[in-house]
Amino acid sequence: MFKIIKREEMAEGTVILNEIEAPLIAKKAKPGQFVILKAYEEGERIPLTMAETDPEKGTITIIYMVVGKSTAYFRDMKVGDSYQDIIGPLGKPTHIEKVGTVVCVGGGTGVAVLHPITRAMKEAGNHVICIIGARNKDLLILEDKMREASHDLRICTDDGSYGRKGFVTEELKDILESQKVDQAVAIGPVPMMKFVSRLTKEYGVPTLVSLNPIMVDGTGMCGGCRVTVGGETKFACVDGPEFDGHKVDYDELMMRLQAYVEEEKACYNDYCRLSEKG
C-alpha cells in the first residue's frame, strides 16, 4: 500500500497534488519517468509522470487533472488513504545535457511534468527560458516553482487575465525570432505539443515532447501505447515517453486517445451521480 502524506488542490480544484510514500520508486526515479497507479482492486491502471521525488523521505509527487472516473476517485482520497498499487519508475529518463539555451514550454498539468526537467536543465548549466500557459490566471499552476527552476519565466493566458494574452506558441515565436535557441522541451496537451513542434521545426530547434497515450502494463508487453514516430511504430512506455517532437504523428495520437471516450464518459457520470448521493 502506498500512503498519501500530502494533498493539495490547484487550479480551482481541477488539479490535485498527491505526495505518496513509495521509497523504492523514489530512490530510482529520474526526471521524465512515470509511474502507473491503481487505487483499489477494481481500479484502472493510470500512468502519470512524476512531478517530484524525494529519495531521502522516500516519496514521489504526482499532479493530475481530474478528467474521468479514476482521477475523480484519486481526487477523493485523503491524506492517510493509500493507493493499492504503484509501479515504477517506468520509461526512459529525459536526456539532460548542457547545450546552451533551452526553452521549456508547458501547458495545463504538463507544467508539473516539465518542472523537474526544467530544474535539471538549469542545473546542467543551460540558460533556461520557460513559457507556461493556461486558459486563465486561476488555472495556472506551479508559477513560483517554475520561476525558481528557470532563468526567465514567461506566462501566457488565453483570456489575458495574467501575463501575455494568447497561446504559448506566440511567445515562443518571439523568442525564436530574437535569439539563438539550442533546444526546446514541450509538455502539455497534444495540440500544444504539435504546434510548438511545428514552429520549432521551422527554426531548426531540436524539440523533446512527452507523450501520454493509453497504457496498460507500462513495460512493453501490450502495445496499447503505440505511437508513430518518424514513420516507425514505438511503444511509448519503454521507448519513450519522450520523443523527437518533429517526428511524432500527433493526429494519430489524438485519435488513439479517443479510443474509450464513450466508455469513460459513462463511467465518470455514474461515479459523479453516486458520489453526489454520498
Binding site: E44, G224, Y260, D270
Partner: peptide, 26 residues
C-alpha cells in the same frame, strides 16, 4: 489490439465486467 492487450484487459483487469470495474475493453 494485440492479443496481449485485449486479454490483459479482459482477464487481469476483469474488463468484461465493465462498468462494474473501471478498465474498459473494446
Amino acid at each position: 489490439l494485440s492479443a496481449n492487450e485485449y486479454l490483459t484487459r479482459a482477464n487481469l483487469m476483469k474488463a468484461y465486467k465493465f462498468p462494474e470495474v473501471d478498465t474498459p475493453i473494446p
